[in-house]
């Protein structure tokens, strides 16, 4: 295992150097296939799979660098984060990740990856440039959900078995608070304005909303669908709409996406998708939402304006993570 480097004080300036690519001609959604050790590339216009690239073992979490020049892949059973060139599908190199990386989040300055090491109860912080581990932070058992505030100052790791959101100060790489959530938290998302933190609890069946400034719980959202047993309504992946008005919540084995109105906290719609829906990604133009459906091995495309599913795309076995890439 990676030797542990404790808490280098990082004085990273967290300026946001985000240059979006030009007009998108063939935007893409990249989807990890957990049980095929591949990644599928979906063309957002034609809604067809245009490429399938091999990855390390059990790829799950996936995200682009903020300039979209690199794709980071959690190859959980290879104990590595892989760096792929999205132009060629070639694995450029591995980053040290700690054991069993499941999910991660990249800092707004595009430099640091915060990685959840599911089997070791650690959050590993890796510098993507020097390719070195800069910190390892002890968190609860089975860390998974990873979020970072838009200003980059707070990183959230949720631990599935400890049932907590751990608030990490990115300046000191220390935990500053731990908040209890319902059973088996899976995912953490900050609102685009950075004021709210949303945490989904798979077994608890709820989404908890926290005030970022005080870490106080503001609200808790529950779900209900006729003809589906309540225990099956298991919130996992979440995404804010870019305007921050709505949150789309994947409900796992309930095979639905819930649409939550942020202002009223009300669930306004449920959208039927494929079986065991894990995660979601918006198309770069925000008109379509793509969901990974683990058990049915496909991706559902939702038209965001009408909130209706428009197409199902076959990918590999157990699609898990999804990330969008605008292309020139």
């Amino acid at each position: 295992m990676t030797p542990r480097r404790c808490l280098l004080a990082l004085s990273t300036s967290l300026t946001l150097a985000l240059t979006l690519a030009g007009p998108a001609l063939a935007d893409e959604i990249w989807v990890t296939n957990e049980l095929d050790d591949t990644i599928s590339v979906i063309d957002v216009d034609t809604l067809a799979v245009t490429a399938t690239y091999p990855t390390g073992q059990r790829p799950r979490g996936v995200t682009f660098s903020r300039d979209f020049s690199r794709l980071y892949i959690c190859a959980s059973d290879s104990n590595a984060v892989q760096v792929m060139d999205p132009e060629t599908g070639e694995i450029l190199h591995d980053l040290p990740s700690g054991a069993d990386p499941e999910q991660f989040v990249i800092s707004p300055d595009d430099r640091l990856l915060y990685i959840a090491n599911e089997d070791d109860a650690i959050t590993t912080v890796v510098d993507t440039e020097s390719r070195k581990v800069v910190a390892q932070i002890d968190v609860g058992i089975e860390p998974e959900g990873m979020g970072i505030s838009p200003d980059g100052k707070i990183q959230i790791t949720t631990s599935e078995t400890t049932n907590m959101a751990h608030w990490i100060d990115t300046e000191t790489q220390q935990i500053i608070a731990n908040t209890l959530v319902d059973s088996r938290p899976r995912h953490a998302e900050f609102s685009p304005d950075g004021k709210e933190l949303w945490v989904s609890a798979e077994v608890g069946g709820t989404v908890s909303i926290f005030d970022v400034a005080t870490q106080a719980e503001l609200a808790k959202i529950s779900f209900a669908l006729p003809n589906i047993r309540p225990e099956k309504l298991q919130p996992v992946g979440m995404r804010f709409s870019p305007d921050g008005a709505r949150v789309f919540v994947a409900l796992g084995p309930a095979d639905h996406i819930a649409v939550v109105d942020v202002a009223t906290r009300a669930v306004t719609d449920y959208i039927l998708v494929g079986r065991r829906v894990w995660h979601l990604a918006f198309s770069p133009d925000n008109t379509k939402l793509f969901t990974t459906n683990g058990v049915s091995g496909d991706v559902t495309v939702i038209d965001v304006a009408s909130l209706t599913p428009v197409k199902t795309i076959k990918v590999g076995r157990f699609p898990w993570g999804a990330s969008a890439r605008p292309t020139d």
Partner: peptide
């Protein structure tokens, strides 16, 4: 391997 938490209790605030 199982790793024990070594974060000092002093820096842990628990809501509620």
């Amino acid at each position: 391997m199982f790793r024990w938490l070594s974060a000092p209790l002093a820096c842990i605030a628990v809501a509620g």
